[in-house]
Design a protein around this nucleic acid. Sequence first.
DNA 1: GAGTGGTCTAGACCACACC
DNA 2: GTGTGGTCTAGACCACTCC
Lengths: 244, 244
Amino acid sequence: MTTLHGSPTFRPLYEQIKILITQSLVSGEWKPGEIIPSEIDLAKRYKVSQGTVRKAIDELAAENILVRRQGKGTFVATHTEEKRKYYYLRLFNESGEKEEPVSELLTWNKIKADAKMAHVLGVRKGSPLIELTRVLRMNGKPVIYDEIRLSPTLFKGLTAAKINEFQGTIYSLYETLYGLRIVQAEERLKAIPASPKVAGHLGLKAGEPILSIERVALTYGDKPVEWRVSLCNTENHYYLNEIG
Amino acid sequence: MTTLHGSPTFRPLYEQIKILITQSLVSGEWKPGEIIPSEIDLAKRYKVSQGTVRKAIDELAAENILVRRQGKGTFVATHTEEKRKYYYLRLFNESGEKEEPVSELLTWNKIKADAKMAHVLGVRKGSPLIELTRVLRMNGKPVIYDEIRLSPTLFKGLTAAKINEFQGTIYSLYETLYGLRIVQAEERLKAIPASPKVAGHLGLKAGEPILSIERVALTYGDKPVEWRVSLCNTENHYYLNEIG
DNA sequence: GAGTGGTCTAGACCACACC
DNA sequence: GTGTGGTCTAGACCACTCC
């Protein structure tokens, strides 16, 4: 690979390497949980120095796309491993613990994308979407009511049965069954009154305050994969955010 | 500086450099907004290679403690500069814009630290604290009611008059008048019903849902400086969180 | 042109995991 | 021991800013 220094559209070599590595992740050459070639091998493959590969991997590791393990190698991050399992769940109980949620699927429906869904999911208005609703219980009590919307183009053949029989979180289902790894999410939070329906699911009275978390989840290359809204009973839990 | 490789308490050189740089920041050798010595000069000073200094600065820049500017130098980050001015304010209006808040100080009081305040602010139970309350208006309308608690040990002589006459955000006040730069914050969010008092300040009815944001703000070395709770009317605003 | 940070290289050696 | 990532060095050259 030749340097592009001095070129009008200057891009550092390591960024180009990042793109090449990401392409191999998207194409499935290296799957979640698998090891990727060593830095030395990648340096040979891309015809750059080990230091340049290192910088590319450093940034991908900082973005939680790869995981380095000294003495072992570099691995594709996965939602299957314990540490990342509930990475996107920001709810803690009053003791500061993250409780293991138990999910119950309530409904599975085909709906049509309105203007907003079309925009955030990058599909045409009126195109079909899958809509799931579920309740997450922590310590036996319902805490979160989820409404999840997915494009059936990305999730071909996703049925309620498939979801119910799958062992693991829904993001590890995306990953395992559809090769879609969630690497980023954007959440918008509001305090809203509980509707009668949601209040019923969460054991609250209608009108009581609940935390609404609207999320867009993205895969490699900022591609939107999922929209959801999580309605949370925050009587005994809080949403934690650390601002660095 | 000699390498500690092989030592039982192995610490990479660049981490030691990070600590040394941070010490100079705490001691005030380099103040917010000021330039620090060039990488080459720091390398000479600490008797390490430029690459090692570079890695230390890289991490401090990633932590928003330093700011690199190509061709100019490396600077101590500051809340005074436009980009960082409202960095810890995560509230956006429905158009996705961050609105400029206007602050009105409501009360200034001396209180005593209860067990919780003592714990989070690292002071003795019963020791004096300063308590401020204020309202933040956006676009003329009250959106946030703040309750802020500070240790008078760190903020000697902080009076209501001093706050009122200060031009700029309260974090730039901490920085300019007391040399305390906020570099990190931990926020705990809940949806709660508005109390009659807070409802009055925010133009809501008592019991309507508001977003409660409890924040502990830290300076260098994870030292707590401020506790606050922000009670937000999220009818026309949302709290944004990007999870990487 | 001089000085700063940014990129890239090549090579040495250390720490860690696995055999 | 071998192979992996992690640290550290020295040096070259590029890009940006200011004079």
